[in-house]
Design a protein around this nucleic acid. Structure first.
Length: 743
DNA sequence: TTTGCCGTCCTTTTT
DNA sequence: GGACGGCAAA
């Protein structure tokens, strides 16, 4: 008996398909991996196997889409071969790092700022104004989307302008142009620029390209179905000399088309690399039979899809549950109840996840969990870094690192309030524009701007403050942050807030302790690197299964994770599939894939729920169950009515068709929409109202119910109804409207 | 310059 | 139900 070699050890417990992928050495490799087919295992074992055979760890580059996935992969590779020098990171952080490293070769400032979405929107608003357009007609959010699309297709402002053939695109080209100028003058890059600049560098700077090709000789790209054009080019060019590229993915889990991901990258891999080896992993080791066949039945409805056999040897398990609840609060209570039961039966909260299509659905769940004392963890990393106080503090750091970052400078110029208002800022900007002097520089010499008057002193003090901050040692970051809080006076500012809710200071403390963690993890790190990391965090990154709490996240954030028990809420038409995506078949199919991704996260139990009424944005509406539910194979699920008061006649009565019909007649009858708050204030017992669904009615009684107003209304046709927030749906009856609002 | 109130508008997902 | 802009008053 000989001891197994390290290589053999790595191949134990792998199926033959998995083994093929792991042991494939040189040349292109495509791994088409269905959900739960052991993909991560294959990637990590493959990296370990390469290292165990001939390859130097530092010659391997593995790219993922989230830092969380990268961290997880790094961890699992380290378990197999010990911590090593393999580069495992996201596309964006790789680019940020390399652009900084090669800044000199690329005529780029190494201390560039990275604009997040909020910064981008601010800059875009300014760009829109500069292009003599009204941000009201050219909403930055929409423009942002369009420019981002253009960038991910590698179109700069000039290329975009060239192909712009209608009025709208021509105007957009103008905004795009201005926007790039703003980025330039701020020494800033947005998310897409990180990729775009890297593509430029790889294409136009042979010395950079060849150095990188020598550095990274084996390339792995995970979730390849989510790559966009820019990422595709980066991967392709990096492996041009050696073709050692291994990509893994699943076209059925492509859910980022809206962000420019191009599913044809994975579908055309064989065309791009004719000698590619293809490995299919279709056996599922994760889910029970019923869960898998329900998911399979759903995804089969996608017509723009290559057929794939999903199968498992796992036991069929319990049926998928489709639960109907009266409203979203009942839905949340139902789930809380099920979780409580699960825990009482000896289960652990960390086994459980709740998924939703939109973040706003999380609130009702949170409330229910809090009152049921169920520990939960919301996966919303961005939200933390998007908080005002966090952004303010980080803006200070950004100004220290990059004095050109005018956007950050203007953000903090009056935070905390130091009597530098909009007028002063305007004067500064004007002066800066006409004289070509950066704002940062103008601060020190305000006497040159006669229009400033008494704000000059404040400006000078602010300039001194910035100088002081720049003099503080930049590492460790924790100390810098503490010093910053003190010098700026932000600490006392937030401490004063404490009485009403201490959250601002709590968040700052959380930031400081995460900075301390950073200092510990990156003894070599500098402030620039710290800022880069904080700019590129995302939702899932914050997920920590060790906390023993129920995980709550959007369906998008759920990809790549698995849980024994999964709840999916809001299976309603308009939510999943989302109403914004019903226009195109392609996007309906993406919604279906999203649903598929959610379902296939579940190992043992899957509960999908919908509410008959749902309050969204303050309005209660009748819902229609998601069409996706009807696509589940009948033998794989059971339908459950939670709580009572459900009869199908009632349901039929309020199908979408009648609902629309009633709404239309209501619209004809009512001449003018009344402002909600103005009308609600006039609600008194005895007044007659019109409800778009129930028709004409008379208010019987108005009472307070907690912080809500509760109204009992007797409708001519539908009889008496109790309404809480739904009274917001009410309108004045037609005759009353004409009386009170003559026109 | 700041504050607070009002009305309007928007509502997906995120590196 | 919340973010934001506009406006008036402190």
């Amino acid at each position: 008996m000989t001891r197994p070699t390290p290589q053999q050890h790595l191949l134990e417990n792998l199926t033959s398909a998995q083994r093929t992928a792991v042991t494939h050495c040189d040349g292109p490799l495509l791994v088409l991996a269905g959900p739960g087919s052991g993909k991560t295992r294959v990637i990590t074992h493959r990296i370990a196997y390469l290292i165990a055979t001939t390859v130097q760890p530092e010659h391997i580059l593995a790219l993922t889409f989230t830092n969380k996935a990268a961290g997880e992969m790094r961890h699992r590779v380290a378990e197999l071969v010990g911590p090593g020098r393999t580069t495992i990171c996201t596309f964006h952080s790789l680019c940020a790092r390399l652009l900084r490293e090669f800044a000199a070769d690329l005529a780029l400032a190494p201390n560039f700022s990275i604009f997040d979405r909020a910064d981008t929107l601010t800059a875009l608003k300014e760009a829109t104004r500069q292009a003599d357009l009204d941000p009201k007609n050219w909403p930055p959010a929409v423009t942002c989307e369009k420019i981002s699309r253009a960038k991910s297709k590698l179109q700069g402002p000039a290329e975009y302008q060239e192909q712009a053939d209608d009025f709208q695109s021509k105007q957009l080209a103008k905004i795009y142009h201005r926007y790039q100028q703003i980025l330039q003058s701020n020494s800033a890059l947005d998310f897409d620029d990180l990729l775009l600049r890297m593509v430029d560098a790889l294409r136009n700077n042979e010395s950079v390209r060849s150095r990188l090709a020598r550095r990274y000789r084996y390339l792995l790209v995970d979730e390849y179905q989510d790559t966009n054009q820019a990422q595709y080019v980066i991967a392709r060019v990096l492996c041009r000399d050696h073709n050692n590229i291994c990509v893994t993915g699943d076209p059925d889990q492509s859910i980022y088309g809206w962000r420019g991901a191009d599913i044809s990258n994975i579908l055309d891999f064989e065309r791009d690399f004719p000698q590619a080896r293809i490995v299919r992993l279709e056996q599922n080791y994760r889910s029970t039979g019923h869960i898998l066949s329900a998911a399979d039945g759903l995804i089969r409805n996608n017509s723009l899809r290559k057929h794939k056999d999903l199968w498992t040897q796992n036991p069929v398990g319990q049926l998928v549950e489709v639960v109907c609840c009266p409203d979203e609060r009942a839905e949340a209570r139902y789930i809380a109840g099920r979780i409580a039961q699960y825990v009482e039966d000896g289960g652990s909260c960390k086994d459980i996840a709740v998924f939703y299509r939109v973040n706003s659905l999380s609130r009702t769940l949170e409330q229910a969990f809090r009152s049921a004392v169920i520990p939960y963890q919301m996966i919303r990393g961005v939200a933390f870094y998007a908080r005002r106080e966090i952004k303010d503090v980080l803006a200070y750091l950004r100004v220290i690192v990059n004095p050109d970052d005018e956007l950050s400078l203007l953000r903090i110029i009056n935070v905390p309030a130091r009597k530098i208002g909009a007028k002063t800022v305007k004067a500064l900007q004007d002066r800066s524009r006409t004289s070509g002097t950066p704002v940062r520089q103008l601060l020190a010499e305000p006497d040159n701007i006669p229009s400033l008057g008494r704000a000059a002193g404040s400006l000078q003090k602010f300039a001194v403050l910035l100088d002081e901050l720049s003099a503080v040692p930049q590492s460790p970051v924790k100390n810098l942050l503490e010093r910053l809080m003190h010098l700026t006076g932000l600490d006392s500012e937030y401490a004063a807030d404490r009485h009403e809710d201490g959250t601002a200071m709590d968040n700052i403390n959380e930031l400081i302790s995460s900075a301390a963690q950073y200092d510990q993890d990156n003894p070599q790190g500098d402030l620039e690197d710290y800022l880069q990391q904080t700019s590129l965090v995302c939702d899932v990154d914050a997920f920590d299964p060790a906390q023993g709490a129920v995980a709550m996240m959007t369906l998008h954030a759920a990809k790549g994770l698995e849980f024994p028990v999964v709840f999916m809420v809001g299976l309603e038409d308009g939510l999943l599939p989302h109403s914004r995506s019903v226009d195109y078949i392609a996007s309906i199919e993406e919604e279906r894939r999203l649903c598929f991704v959610g379902m296939t996260r579940a190992k043992r139990n899957l509960v999908m729920s919908y509410a008959r009424y749902r309050t969204l944005r303050g309005l209660t509406n009748r819902t229609v169950p998601s069409g996706f539910l009807a696509e589940l194979p009948a033998e794989s699920f059971q339908h459950i009515q939670s709580d009572v008061s459900f009869d199908s006649e009632f349901l039929d009565k309020f199908t979408k068709a009648t609902d629309t019909a009633v709404r239309q007649s209501a619209r004809q009858g009512s001449t003018r929409r009344v402002s909600r708050s103005a009308f609600v204030a006039q609600l008194v017992a005895g007044s007659s109202v019109y409800h778009p669904r129930f028709g004409l009615g008379k208010i019987e009684q108005i009472s307070k119910f907690g912080k809500f107003t509760r109204a009992v209304i007797d409708f001519e046709q539908a009889g008496p109804q109790t309404m809480m927030r739904e009274y917001a749906n009410l309108q004045k009856s037609p005759e009353q409207q004409s009386q009170q609002f003559p026109r």
